[in-house]
Every structure is written in C-alpha cells, then in structure tokens.
Simulated scan of single mutants.
Amino acid sequence: MGARLNATRTRTALRTSARVSFDLLLVLLLTWVVLWLLGRAWSIIWPIVIALLITTLTWPVARFLRRRRWRPALAASVVTLAFLLVVGGVVALIAVPVASESGELADGVVAGIDKLREWVAGPPLNIDEAQISGALDSAVSRVQDSMGSIASAAVTGVGTVVNGVVTAVLALFLMFFLLKDGPRFLPWLGRQLPGRLADDVPAVAARCWATLGSFVRSQAFVGLLDAVFIGLGLWILGVPLVLPLAVLTFVGAFVPIVGALFAGFVAVLIALVFNGLTTALIVLAIIIVVQQLEGNVFQPMLQSRGLGLHAAVVLLAVTLGGNLAGIAGALLAVPVAAMIAVVWNYVREQLSDPPPEPAAGTETETGTT
C-alpha cells in the first residue's frame, strides 16, 4: 500500500514538473519571438526610445509653460526650439575652442610623433631610422592592399551617419508630438482597452513614465559629477580646452562605455600633446578613478534610489544589457529593468488580498460619532 502511494506521488510530481517545464519553455519561446520582432522593428523603436528619453528631460519646462496657460502646440514648439539651441550651443562650445587651437594641436601632434621616434631610437629599444622607415613603408603597403575593405567600411560609415541623422530628425518630431499631445495619450489609451485593462494599463504606463524620468535625471546628475571632477582635475594640471573637455565628458555620460572611453581618450591625448607624458598619465589616473567611482558608487546609488532598484541589480542589468545588445543594450538596461520592476510591483499589488472591511457595528459606531 505504501509503495503504491509513493509511486502515485512520484507520478504526480513528475507530471507537475513536466507541466511547469512546458510552461517555462512557452514563456521562453514567447520572449524570443518578442525580441525577434523588436529587432526587426528596431529602426522604428529606436527613434521612439530616444524621443521618450529626451521628452522626459524637457517635459518639466513644457509643463511649466502649459500651467501658465500657454497653448500645447506653442509650448511644445518653444521647448523643441530651445532644446535645439542648447544642443547647438553645446556643439559650438566644443567645436569653437578646438578649432581655435587646431593649429597648435596639429603642431603638438607632430612634435609628439617626433619625440616618440626619438624615444624608440634610443635605449632600451635602439630601433634605427631604417627599421622605422621600413615599418612605415610596410604599413603603407598594407593600407594600399586593403583599399577595397577601407572603401566598403567608409561606405558603411556613411550609411550609419545617414541613418543616425534620420533617426535624430524622426526623434525630434516625435518629441514635439509627445510634448504637445502626451497628456492626452493615457486617457485615449484607456478608452481603447476593454474591461479592467482600461484602468490597469494607463496606471502602469504612468508609473513607467515617472520611472523613466527619474532615470534620465539621475543619469544627467552622474554626468554632471563626472564633468565637474574631471574638469577640475584638468584645470589644476593646466591642461588646455578644459571647458570643451568637461562638456564632452557630460555628454558622453549618456552613452555608456563608449562615451566615457571616447571622452577620456580625448582628454588624455590633449594632455599628452600640450603638457607631456607625465601630465597625460596623471589625467588618465584621474579619469580612471572618477569613472570607477561613477560606475561602482555614484551611478548605482543614485539610480537605485530613483528607480527603486538595488545597486547590485543596476550593475548586473548594465552588464547583461551590454552583453546582449552592445551600447544600446547598456543604455536601455537600467530603465527596462526598472519598468519590469514597476510592472511586477503593480501585479503584486493587484493580486494581494484586499484589506479587510470594517465590521458593520464599527461602521455604525463611527457614523454615529
């Protein structure tokens, strides 16, 4: 009798495990299909994502103007034009000083190359001029042999630039319409959905919007910290072009990994050209320290507070997003994780038991008092 009961329990456990495994496989298959569809529609989704990120940054200004009885179209137009002016000013703030120093920068690069050749020719390497010339000739011949690959890469690069311009223009138009008609979207969405979804989906969307705004503000604050600390270090060391480098550091903070690497590379290069190897190494050390503090302390702390995520979850999300989808994955990993947490918290709230209703006698006593 006991053996038969144990066999029945075993079969039941196996059926339950098989059913759960089958459900998990269906969930994984559905996730794969969704990701595949997102990849196929990425040319449309990416401008929408950029527009949402920009809108969360500019919406407080548009909301302020709308509360002053500005018409929605006028407020959205003014904010969009102001955003374009700010972006143009940032580009000018970087480009103008660099252009004014371009002659000295070019001379510094040539002098740096000459110093490098002198260092290579001396001890301990003792590489003579003939070997250096032979290496240069070999490099030139390799470049000439690879002209086809270089041309195809250039064409690909031109296509990438064109796609980037199209994406930026489309995101700008979407930002205008979001600023103009954004407050009417959730009520419209609620009218299109049946039953309980008419309340649940707009509520979740409103929470996700607040979470996305918190992410953008925390990212901007982290970029400001990077720009201040690195700019202060460059100013103390006497490195030129401090303001453009600080602005470049702030802008690069919005592009994970590549933005910080590019801004740091430019700062070290300018320090090397104008101030020498020792100053360049000190600048490199400052950048490494600041970016380590940013990536492992400031950013996880700020984003964990603003997004309701633990700092370890933020670090793991950025790592996973970067491995799965590169730069775009690293950029979107934290807000996506935060939105998943928002949806989970909302579902948990709806599935939890409602608070017990007060007894009739208690209501009567409350009402009489």
Score class of each variant (00 low, 15 high):
residue 86 V to Q: 05
residue 311 A to P: 15
residue 207 R to C: 01
residue 345 N to G: 09
residue 292 Q to I: 04
residue 40 R to N: 07
residue 176 F to G: 04
residue 90 V to R: 04
residue 121 A to W: 01
residue 215 F to V: 02
residue 18 A to L: 11
residue 213 G to N: 03
residue 139 A to L: 15
residue 91 V to W: 10
residue 129 E to Q: 10
residue 101 E to P: 00
residue 128 D to F: 04
residue 61 V to A: 14
residue 325 A to I: 04
residue 47 P to I: 07
residue 65 L to K: 05
residue 360 A to N: 13
residue 319 T to G: 11
residue 81 L to Y: 03
residue 284 L to Q: 12
residue 147 M to A: 15
residue 140 V to C: 03
residue 162 V to T: 13
residue 23 D to V: 06
residue 46 W to M: 12
residue 244 P to T: 08
residue 10 T to V: 08
residue 171 A to G: 11
residue 178 L to F: 12
residue 216 V to P: 00
residue 256 P to K: 02
residue 93 L to E: 13
residue 10 T to Q: 15
residue 46 W to Y: 14
residue 17 S to N: 09
residue 306 G to L: 10
residue 6 N to R: 11
residue 250 F to E: 09
residue 36 W to H: 10
residue 80 T to E: 02
residue 356 P to H: 10
residue 81 L to V: 13
residue 13 A to M: 12
residue 21 S to C: 03
residue 22 F to K: 06
residue 139 A to E: 12
residue 34 V to M: 11
residue 122 G to E: 08
residue 237 L to Y: 10
residue 159 G to I: 08
residue 305 R to T: 00
residue 205 A to N: 02
residue 55 T to A: 05
residue 273 V to N: 03
residue 127 I to S: 05
residue 73 A to E: 12
residue 76 A to E: 01
residue 254 F to I: 09
residue 240 P to G: 05
residue 119 W to F: 08
residue 356 P to A: 15
residue 183 P to R: 03
residue 157 G to W: 14
residue 350 Q to P: 06
residue 139 A to I: 10
residue 129 E to H: 08
residue 364 T to Y: 10
residue 4 R to P: 00
residue 51 A to D: 00
residue 219 Q to I: 07
residue 279 T to K: 06
residue 71 R to A: 14
residue 32 W to E: 06
residue 113 I to S: 03
residue 286 I to Y: 07
residue 267 A to M: 08
residue 278 T to G: 11
residue 303 Q to T: 09
residue 286 I to N: 01
residue 62 A to W: 00
residue 303 Q to C: 04
residue 204 V to I: 15
residue 110 V to Y: 08
residue 91 V to Y: 07
residue 213 G to P: 03
residue 211 T to P: 01
residue 313 V to C: 05
residue 16 T to R: 06
residue 182 G to I: 07
residue 348 R to W: 09
residue 311 A to T: 02
residue 4 R to H: 09
residue 180 K to M: 14
residue 99 A to M: 13
residue 265 F to Q: 08
residue 51 A to G: 04
residue 22 F to T: 10
residue 298 F to T: 13
